[in-house]
Amino acid sequence: MNRARLQSLTLHAALVACALVVLGPFVWIALAGFKTQISLMLGEIAFTPMLDNFRELLFSSTSDYLANFRNSLIVAGASTVIVLVVSTLAAYSIERMGWPRWVVHLFLLGAAVFNAIPAITLVGAWYVMFRSLDMYNTYAAVILAHATLNLPIGIWLMATFIREVPRELEEAARIDGCGTLALLWRIIVPVVMPGLAATAILVFIHSWNEFVVALNLTAKQTATVPVAIAKYAQEHETKYGEMAAGALLSTLPALLLLFFGQRHIVRGLTAGAVK
């Protein structure tokens, strides 16, 4: 065997080992979701798969999981739409509309600093604020909080993508007497569509996964999936099987997006970090 082949085999062996370390825990929790509490606690390797945990989770009268799933879809969907619209407008304004440089810098710096602040430091103020506005335990409160938390990343990404659009495209449209909004809608948006998709996927996932804000601004009716899963772990007698089943189902959107939109995810995560 020659050297190059040996090297390639060693690398693949190492990478497969790492892939197993990454996948192992997912496989383990997936198996746990199909075990009974007793089988799980006995640590059985060979077991008969049961759907009881899923049945209990989805259809039992004591479980709100389906409602939690719907709540998460509403919150993540709405905050994604808000971030896309607001950040595209803002990004186009600061990138292409001739603001003095200091305004652009100040705006981007402000957004970056806000992005560095942990959400937990603001949650207390939001709680008091939304309580006094009678908005505690409403979708609107969580959606507003999630949209604002994700706005810096939205603006950052959209500004990066809009910067790449050739100016000639706009100039041609301007000469044809196109207004700014029409120009943005008909020329810019179609060109940055992949960028919009990347931003949308990232913001959706951030909101879907977000826990500390949802934990403190929602109650039973508006609780999102992460809040529900945490509850399974915190209850007096931890329901391990149901927690595993709930955890497994909560990764569905991520799996779907990974399957259909991997290119966009990679683009969104790496944009701006690497030239």
């Binding site: 825990p25 997912f26 383990w28 992460p226 899963i229 945490a230 955890a247 990764t251 991520a254 990974l258």
Partner: peptide, 21 residues
């Protein structure tokens, strides 16, 4: 890359649940 992307996309609370078990 597909395999390695997976943990990034999963809720922190789910990661916690997995490791708690």
């Amino acid at each position: 890359r597909t395999v390695f992307l997976l943990p990034i996309l999963v809720p922190g609370i789910v990661i916690g649940a997995i490791w708690k078990l």
